[in-house]
Computed example of a mutant assay.
Amino acid sequence: MNHSSSPQSPAYWIVVPAAGVGARMGADCPKQYLPLVGKTVIEHTLERLLALPNIAGIYLVLGADDNYWNDLSLAQNNRIQRVAGGAERCDSVLNALEQLFDNASPNDWVLVHDAARPCVHVQSVLHLIEQVKTHPVGGILGVPVSDTLKQVNNSIIDSTVDRRLLWQAQTPQMFRLGLLRDCLQRGLAEGKLITDESSALESYGYQPLMVQGRSDNIKITRPEDLAIAAMLLQQQI
């Protein structure tokens, strides 16, 4: 999968961190392998990403003791490269970026997408790419917060937060390979709190673009999310 690209035409790569165990699901296998409308969660996610045009390759980050992936037919897909995961999501993403560095230019774009977001629309990802490809830093998909938000202290409501400035971050999150790798490396070395790729860049003063996505790009975190995702997928079909 040796795609080198010139600075004039950066390539687009995808990194899918899927090394987590999904503890909040309380299931007997990692959440990305739970059944969802005739497939596993991760198959839905990867099939959508594979449908994107002009993607140079997908780097899938899996736990060292992942015994599920090889049973899936997608494991034979030569556009998907398996990478060993790390302790946290940010370590896993960094592992993929380090491997990607052998095949790619620092100027290439990387889209990092959660394995547990199987309902993402190809159209939304194309919109993200279109909006961000000329941006100096990069950008992410998100939606404006619609619920009323409360600041709470020991179960007591302190105040209502002005939600007009608040957005819910989603994935994909799209950044230049070199910049993202540098910020993750530095952030991990300096013990920064890195909750998503964007936060790694923000902590060094970069200002990514927020691109409006769709509210049905949900992340499967708790058992009830699986039923919601099934409904959404069936509607989308």
Rank of each mutant, 00 (worst) to 15 (best):
196 D>G: 07
193 L>G: 01
134 T>Q: 11
168 Q>W: 06
17 P>H: 08
84 A>H: 04
51 A>Q: 13
112 V>R: 01
143 V>D: 01
19 A>K: 05
54 N>W: 02
146 S>R: 07
153 N>H: 12
185 Q>K: 15
6 S>Q: 14
143 V>I: 15
85 G>D: 01
231 M>W: 03
89 R>M: 11
126 L>A: 09
179 L>F: 06
93 V>Y: 04
97 L>W: 07
198 S>E: 15
39 K>Q: 10
43 E>S: 06
141 L>V: 12
14 I>Y: 08
16 V>C: 04
110 V>G: 03
143 V>F: 00
187 G>R: 10
98 E>R: 14
182 D>A: 13
231 M>Q: 15
94 L>P: 02
91 D>P: 14
152 V>W: 01
16 V>F: 07
76 Q>A: 14
30 P>F: 12
76 Q>F: 07
34 L>W: 06
208 P>I: 11
155 S>Q: 10
44 H>V: 08
99 Q>N: 11
226 L>W: 02
107 N>F: 10
184 L>P: 07
153 N>P: 04
65 D>L: 10
68 Y>W: 15
128 L>F: 03
188 L>Y: 07
160 T>F: 07
133 K>D: 06
93 V>P: 09
199 S>M: 04
70 N>S: 12
6 S>G: 12
23 A>G: 14
102 D>W: 11
17 P>Y: 10
20 G>C: 07
195 T>S: 05
235 Q>N: 12
196 D>R: 00
25 M>L: 15
3 H>I: 14
194 I>E: 01
95 N>T: 11
155 S>A: 12
115 A>Q: 02
122 V>A: 01
36 L>N: 00
55 I>Q: 05
139 G>F: 02
154 N>Y: 09
175 F>V: 11
217 N>A: 05
29 C>Y: 01
79 R>F: 13
70 N>I: 07
228 I>L: 13
45 T>Y: 03
111 L>K: 00
129 I>Q: 11
131 Q>N: 04
203 S>D: 12
